[in-house]
Each structure stands twice: as structure tokens, then as C-alpha cells.
Amino acid sequence: MLKVEFDEDRCKGCELCTDACPKNIVIMAEHFNAMGFHPATVVEQEKCISCGFCARMCPDVVITVRKEEKK
């Protein structure tokens, strides 16, 4: 399970999430999604702190954020 998951075909490539990330790991992918946009994505999942800021700024509910369960 990914810490931050992008439902790529919902993304309209607005990039608002990229500015919101305190770790600057949200980037726009090279490929195109079904709508012809470069979808946002996170490659360096390990750097994600599950703060959800990217998801807060997303107008299209593209992003699902998860957190490691503390034992």
C-alpha cells in the first residue's frame, strides 16, 4: 500500500499539490493520463510524512494518503 496514492485519471495537471508538499516530492509525471494531462505523482514514497497537504490542495480528490500504523 502506498503512503500517498494518485488516482491518475482524475488529475487535471493543475499542479497545486506540488507547491503544497513540505517535502517537495510531488512532481508531474512524464506520461499522459486518459484526459491528456501530465498527472501528479510521488516517486520518493519513503520521504512522504503523510501530512496530506497535497490532498488538501487537490481540487479533484485525486490523492489518498495513508500513514504507517504505530505499533
Partner: peptide, 8 residues
Amino acid sequence: MITVFERP
């Protein structure tokens, strides 16, 4: 993994 953000 617990979800902390998803579509309401």
C-alpha cells in the same frame, strides 16, 4: 497502514 485522507 491507516488512511488519513480520502474522498469524503
